[in-house]
């Protein structure tokens, strides 16, 4: 990678001091950000483990719920089950709150309690009750899974962003500052040498003149 010097920089002592300050700041920022990244990644791994568990649980229960639903449909007829579903369906409210994980807001869901079933016992079969119970259980698990996956989504985004910033500092910004600093230093040295040489020369000329 070609080391580029920042544009519009004049090789003066003032600029040099300023560049040194900027470099120190960039290095500090880089360190802080990479610490943040490491911390995020370690809590990310915890979430991944949790999510895997939740997913297996949820998929198992969804499967069971489908089976009990099929059984209910077998004894009652598909039509009747769908009708009952329309009739008794009670929306359940999801309570959403936020949890702060290292400055990233992750979602927390809490599903409202299911209402007791409000249909007459005589018009349905125990298979139907069973499938309602299973379905509710499945939804509970789905909500838990949504919480875990939502957190992964938010944290993953933040990790990507932080990683990009760390890399930009490390591979572009800091090298550029370093190159600028050494450019200014070289220019200043060169000027000093010229100065020194000029003084020598004048001194020699003056001595020649006196003699």
């Amino acid at each position: 990678m070609a080391k580029k010097v920042l544009e519009g920089v004049k090789p003066t002592r003032m600029e040099l001091l300023q560049m040194r300050k900027r470099k120190a700041l960039a290095m500090k920022g880089h360190q802080l950000l990479s610490e943040k990244r490491d911390a995020l990644v370690s809590s990310f791994f915890d979430l991944i483990r949790k999510r895997k568990e939740k997913r297996e649980e949820a998929e198992g229960i969804i499967n069971e719920a489908f089976k009990t639903l099929a059984r209910a449909e077998m004894v009652m007829g598909e039509e009747k089950v769908r009708q009952m579903a329309d009739k008794i369906s009670k929306e359940r409210e999801i309570k959403v709150s936020k949890k702060n994980v290292m400055g990233v807001t992750t979602p927390q869901f809490e599903i409202g309690e299911a209402m007791p079933l409000s249909y007459s016992v005589f018009s349905t079969f125990s298979e139907f009750d069973e499938s309602v119970r299973k379905a509710r259980e499945a939804l509970n698990k789905i909500v838990e899974l949504a919480e875990a996956e939502g957190s992964i989504q938010m944290l993953g985004r933040e990790i990507e962003k932080t990683k990009r910033r760390v890399n930009a500092l490390e591979y572009i910004f800091i090298p550029r500052l370093v190159a600028t600093i050494s450019y200014i230093e070289r220019q200043l040295e060169e000027r000093e040498r010229e100065d020194f040489f000029r003084r020598k020369r004048i001194k020699a000329l003056l001595e020649q003149h006196e003699a």
Binding site: L69, A85, R92
Partner: peptide, 8 residues
């Protein structure tokens, strides 16, 4: 149908 029963 399943999730309707569940409360979606």
């Amino acid at each position: 149908a399943l999730l309707k029963l569940a409360g979606a």
